Computed example of a mutant assay.
Amino acid sequence: MAKNLTTVGFDADDTLWHNERFFHLTQAHFADLLADYVEQEHLMAQLLEAEKRNLGHYGFGIKGFVLSMIETAIDVTGGRVPADVIAQIIAAGQEMLSHPIELLPHAQAAVEKIADSHRILLITKGDLLDQERKLAQSGLGDLFDGVEIVSHKTRPVYDEIFARHGDGPARGMMIGNSMKSDVVPMVDAGGWGVYVPHGLSWAIEHAEPPRTASRYHEITDLGAIADLVQSIG
């Protein structure tokens, strides 16, 4: 009997390993650096707006985040931000780009278990070099049948990826911590979308869950994903 589900995609950042907490720590350091010029709440609002504006220029990832911090620092100080503050922002970004990878609970076991019975993909956004570094350090790279580092996660992107690597999105599943990027567009494409909340989230990735969709699922952590995959068949 043919399987209902043949191909399973995993998001990377904050699904398989920690990521967002390093952005939060760097934002706190950024606020300290600019504390003499602007209140933290206003600074964070300005930074978020800069990140939204710059996604089309820089895409997702740490490098775009650093450039948005520098732009914000210039804006909130009226161009008076000291050079040493800019240097410290750059240094903070470089530290983020070299931070060791720490897998989330159940991540390795989940990937290994599903790899025994299904084609599995890593589908992630972000800077190419940084994502390749993190995948190499994770120790999970050899388990995936395909790796896709994309600029955006949309329905057409999932249509193309799951058609090329599998049997189309209708027989595919995407697992991730972003409702906007991992779940909603995959459900729209006709596949299964599985939401795994992380706790820390980026405001830009917020979306309402497709609760009425039969192929939408939410699990508390990756420890539950193997049973869900098995139940779908």
Rank of each mutant, 00 (worst) to 15 (best):
E41V: 12
H42R: 12
H42E: 15
L43F: 08
L43G: 08
L43W: 00
M44N: 10
M44S: 05
M44C: 05
M44E: 07
M44G: 05
M44I: 06
A45F: 05
A45W: 08
Q46H: 12
Q46N: 13
L47D: 03
E49I: 11
E49M: 15
E49F: 03
A50Q: 09
E51G: 05
E51Y: 10
K52I: 14
R53Y: 06
L55A: 06
L55P: 00
H57S: 02
Y58G: 01
Y58A: 04
G59D: 07
F60Y: 15
F60V: 10
I62T: 04
I62F: 01
K63T: 07
G64F: 13
G64E: 07
F65Q: 04
S68H: 06
S68W: 01
M69I: 04
M69R: 07
I70L: 11
I70F: 09
T72N: 14
A73I: 02
A73D: 02
I74M: 02
D75S: 13
V76H: 00
T77P: 07
T77L: 15
G79C: 11
R80W: 11
V81E: 01
V81K: 01
A83S: 10
A83T: 12
D84G: 03
D84T: 12
A87P: 13
A87C: 04
Q88N: 00
I89P: 04
I90P: 00
A91M: 00
E95H: 06
S98W: 01
S98E: 04
S98R: 15
H99M: 14
P100V: 09
E102F: 08
E102W: 15
L104F: 01
H106V: 10
A107M: 09
A107V: 07
A107L: 15
Q108D: 08
A109D: 15
A109E: 10
A109M: 01
A109N: 07
A110M: 14
A110Y: 01
E112V: 06
E112I: 00
I114Y: 10
I114E: 06
A115R: 00
D116W: 12
D116F: 07
D116K: 15
S117A: 13
S117I: 10
S117N: 01
H118P: 04
H118E: 07
H118F: 05
L121I: 01
L122D: 03
I123A: 03
I123F: 02
I123K: 06
T124G: 14
T124Y: 03
T124S: 12
G126E: 03
G126L: 00
L128S: 08
L129I: 15
L129G: 02
L129F: 11
D130F: 07
R133C: 00
L135G: 06
L135Q: 07
L135K: 09
L135H: 03
A136Q: 12
A136P: 02
A136T: 10
Q137W: 13
S138W: 03
L140T: 00
L140K: 14
G141Y: 09
D142N: 12
F144Q: 12
D145Y: 15
D145S: 06
D145N: 12
G146Q: 14
G146H: 08
G146S: 06
V147G: 01
I149G: 08
I149S: 07
V150M: 08
H152S: 00
T154F: 05
T154W: 03
P156F: 13
V157C: 06
V157G: 10
V157N: 11
Y158C: 02
Y158S: 02
D159W: 06
E160Y: 13
I161V: 04
I161P: 05
F162S: 03
F162G: 02
A163L: 09
R164C: 15
R164K: 09
R164Y: 07
